[in-house]
Write a protein that binds this DNA or RNA. Sequence first.
DNA 1: CGCCCTTTTGAAGAAAATCAAGGGCAGTGG
DNA 2: CCACTGCCCTTGATTTTCTTCAAAAGGGCG
Lengths: 234, 234
Amino acid sequence: MAATQFLKRLSSLVDLSEADEAEVRSLPWSVVNVRRGRDVLSVGHKPGFAYVVQTGWAARYSLRKNGSRRITGVMLPGDFCGIHAVAGAAMDHAILAIADCEIGRIELPEIEKAAQSFPTINKALWRAKLAEEATLRAWLLNSREAIQAIARLICELHARLSFIGAISDGHFTVPLNQEHIGDALGLTSVHVSRMLKELRAAGLADYQRQELLIPDMDALRAACGFDPAYLYLR
Amino acid sequence: MAATQFLKRLSSLVDLSEADEAEVRSLPWSVVNVRRGRDVLSVGHKPGFAYVVQTGWAARYSLRKNGSRRITGVMLPGDFCGIHAVAGAAMDHAILAIADCEIGRIELPEIEKAAQSFPTINKALWRAKLAEEATLRAWLLNSREAIQAIARLICELHARLSFIGAISDGHFTVPLNQEHIGDALGLTSVHVSRMLKELRAAGLADYQRQELLIPDMDALRAACGFDPAYLYLR
DNA sequence: CGCCCTTTTGAAGAAAATCAAGGGCAGTGG
DNA sequence: CCACTGCCCTTGATTTTCTTCAAAAGGGCG
């Protein structure tokens, strides 16, 4: 069901009535598949759809003049993007499939219509934007201590994966490699490797070939001062 | 006239019809004054208004657990904030008056009504949000070379001040002190001082007691690779 | 097995933080 | 008119953090 995860995310942002839910479910979804390493949306593209990640992970990124990459956000199942288009603007950054993705999409006029007729849906879209913005601010706020920055990213991913039910006993799969993590935090992969080693030594987080184990979530949170409020999850 | 600068900013985002303009002008504005160093809006506050800076400068900021401050955006005359409230959310960061400010405000229901009846105004509000978001991404993208980061901030301020007509021959007033600049870029004020000295020595930008002189804007742009597209100015 | 991709490790160097002291300037009050 | 005070900026010396460069070590997979 294409709309299910999307609905879950919307419900975390507002209280949907049954009519709202029915409306979202009735939207005409189509699906595209994007393989790991390929762009879901590219710079300059003017999407005619709103996109929702159904399975897999994606990331927003931009390239610097010197060729280095900065990841500015991670998208998990249920997250959407391309709402840009609601304002008729072109993509000023790209979106990359970190793992093979199934992306659901709705034609923009459809979702605009829904937003216009259903104030709660409109509100949800606004809140989703606010959540994205708050996340960007949280990333900007990220301390310059690399080890804390990494810990906080892990906490964020944990909180979001937990919300969508993708975690079993503090043990989960993260398709990001150390270069992705570095690009998301403005660090080199070499340094990420060293800091992950420290986190492991400290017993806070064990990240080995895409499997992440957190023995004590509270300890990790405390170590980096993570507060999930900016994610707007309920 | 409270609405004038606001209209100018909206016009940079969309093409307003005369009816749209008339609607914005007819909105019931009130004015509040905030002195340099005081908060315009504080964390946790649930604004009942949309705010527009009329004169002065303001900045969004958050405090870290260790007490350090991160400025996540600068607001100049014509910029607005508190649109948060459109979604009924509380402020998760604060807004500080960098210089004495005159802030215009409209009650939220008024602006919501305008947005609902005038699709172009609604679109403008969305685009304004997108511009803010794009700016956050641009800040996140900011290279880790401190001198380039500072140069880029100067370029951004120049572009935005230029747009609102606040610049005469590459010479303008910046009420930010070096600590503000550091907080906006994640640097210490000591390092900012050193880098400003370098920029001065390189003949790229001369910043002395709140007065900024840029001998050759193109040279400065080239030095830091600044591209103003993310500001959505036209 | 051999290849590719990712991670790990080491050593050296660069960038920025930290600590500490001094200097300029504006505003205040004698 | 001058001294005093507070704020901000500047400068130097030192230390920390992270990058860079380089090489080797694991896996996963055809």
